[in-house]
Amino acid sequence: MSVYMPLDCDGFAAALADYLEGDAPDAVRAAVEAHAEECAECGALLADLQAIPVQAAALPALTPSRDLWSGIAERIDARVLPLERPAARTIVPARRSWARPAVAAAALVVATAGITYVATRARYEEMPAATASLPARSTAPESVTSPRQQVAVVTPPPSQAGGNGGTTMDPAGAQRTVERTPAVVAPSDRAPSGAAQLVRREARRGDADSVMSATEPLYDREILKLRTIMKSRRSMLDPKTVAVLEQSIAVIDSAIAQSRSALAKDPASGFLANQLNHSLEKKVELLRTAAMLPART
């Protein structure tokens, strides 16, 4: 900025912004003040511009036209049953080319053994009581969970192991699955959903059918609640976002319908129950995300 002193009105206007911000050198400050005293119009301009920040800082607080808390409470209530975070994915280095077939082979062995065990155990259960009541062989410890449980139980994350249940060793050294009182769900991201916890509890306890009959009403209630929130917030969201959400929900609904249909034909399938549970969990997760989305996004 080049200012010729003493200032005329144009020079005053050019120096004014720096003067008001306190950025003008002393000589310029003095020249601005001198011109403001001489020129009534520029003096009035300076006085007005100095008064505006004072008035602005004293502006009263404004009040919303309605109580906004109910809308906030509705949205934060959507987090009462937080979801567990997916485990971090581990990337296997590509150069270990033997690893993939080995893992696949191991998985195949485990799957085959599991299916065989499920099938044979199911037959054992169908056997007359006299046969079934034979003493267990020493090679099959009583603490081992049932095959259905092996299929249906979702392994809790490490942080859960000490809280809601887990595996302990009894004095005899046998591994035993224990049931603990479910923790109060806090509004954090770390705990699994109430439905997921119930699935685990029920899965430890019994067959897949009872698992889903116990958990589906819980999911249905949660989904209904979240659907209501989403409906009320629909107009606040960007139409493109709403379209994407609806499309995703339709895909998940299709998966839920398929799982339900398959489960109706095979009610004892832990795998199908787990699939249905997973799809319902995904739907709750998506609706919850939608409920938490800021407006117009």
Binding site: L62, P64, S65, R66, L68, G71, I72, R75, I76, R79, P187, M236, M292, P294, A295, R296
Partner: peptide
């Protein structure tokens, strides 16, 4: 004061408190 539209400001106020809770 930032957005002028009072309805929009109310929506944003709700967004702020939801975010603050998170």
């Amino acid at each position: 004061r930032m957005v002028i539209d009072r309805t929009r400001a109310e929506e944003l106020t709700q967004d702020v408190f939801v975010r603050a809770w998170e």
